[in-house]
């Protein structure tokens, strides 16, 4: 009996606040469910409405666009920085590593407030600098692309240092002898990076792509705060993400059924992504050096 007592706290909490809500999401999604009114069984109507809802596709498009704009620069930057940090004679190595973790400990709310000030159309630091170069001003909050770029900048800022540390840890696990042998064979810095560092990083790269995708599906606080709390993230929903759309429908419009249907859609996306991850990681493993 004893061993189960050690794992019971996790499983009890997980059952009540994780698994049960997840299963219940599928149930509520079948209803027209008003939290203070009627619950009417409507079968799959919520899903039919969802697939025909331009706001849903808009939110999906925004989420994808923000994800692409944040993940690609983040991972490329982290690759470069991890490569630079992975140097025997680098000075102040700990200082560099620690400073790269500062964005991670800064809350998303504080980040959103400071970045929307820096990117402000009228008084922002960035538009002032762009103005000196004769560009702009760019309205980063009210325009579609501008708001996507602004949110992507915040996400990238928050995560690139963390990702760099994950890559660096993987690089440090590569035995030094392999690099030395390559150097003896005349491979320069770049070829060492492409032929030794990059292949050994593949599993962790797949891992970070998947985690950044799952994070991307959950983006909510950034668009809420840059649009100063509007339920739709601007007049044309220019930065409304999927999770934000879920929040608006469930807690702004009190459509618990419809909100749950959006939750189910998110669940399907996560399962598909996890499947792709599994496929890629089992395919990649044999190729590791």
């Amino acid at each position: 009996m004893a061993p189960y007592a050690y794992i019971a706290p996790f499983f009890v909490i997980f059952a009540v606040f994780g698994l049960l809500p997840l299963l219940f999401t599928f149930y509520v999604a079948l209803y027209d469910w008003n939290p203070i009114g009627d619950h009417l069984f409507i079968g799959l109507d919520n899903f039919a409405r969802l697939l025909a809802d331009a706001r849903f596709w808009n939110a999906a498009r925004n989420t994808l666009s923000i994800w692409l704009l944040s993940t690609v620069p983040q991972l490329l930057g982290a690759l470069l920085l991890a490569h630079l940090l992975n140097h025997v004679r680098l000075r102040f190595a700990l200082l560099f590593r620690m400073s790269m973790l500062v964005p991670y400990i800064t809350s998303v709310a504080a980040t959103a407030i400071v970045f929307s000030q820096m990117f402000d159309r009228d008084y922002g630091l960035l538009n002032w600098l762009l103005g000196l170069a004769g560009i702009g001003p760019i309205d980063f909050i009210q325009s579609v692309w501008g708001s996507h770029v602004l949110i992507a900048v915040m996400v990238t800022w928050r995560w690139f240092g963390y990702t760099t540390l994950l890559y660096l840890a993987s690089l440090q696990a590569v035995p030094r002898g392999i690099y030395e042998a390559a150097a003896v064979d005349g491979a320069g810095n770049w070829r060492q990076f492409v032929h030794i560092s990059l292949p050994s990083l593949r599993p962790v790269i797949v891992f970070t792509v998947v985690t950044s995708t799952i994070y991307g599906l959950q983006i909510f606080t950034e668009p809420l705060l840059i649009s100063k709390g509007t339920q739709t993230c601007g007049p044309v929903r220019q930065c409304q993400t999927l999770t934000f759309f879920l929040y608006e429908q469930a807690f702004g419009q009190f459509r618990f059924g419809y909100g749950s249907a959006i939750g189910v859609a998110l669940f399907v996306m996560v399962v598909v992504l996890a499947g792709i991850n599994y496929f890629l990681s089992t395919r990649i493993r044999p190729e590791r050096p």
Partner: peptide
């Protein structure tokens, strides 16, 4: 345990709130 790491519980926020 490992599988639950992949699914963000946030997508079930409506029933969580109800519970």
């Amino acid at each position: 345990v490992v599988l639950t790491m992949t699914v963000p519980t946030q997508l079930a926020i409506v029933p969580q709130y109800m519970i």
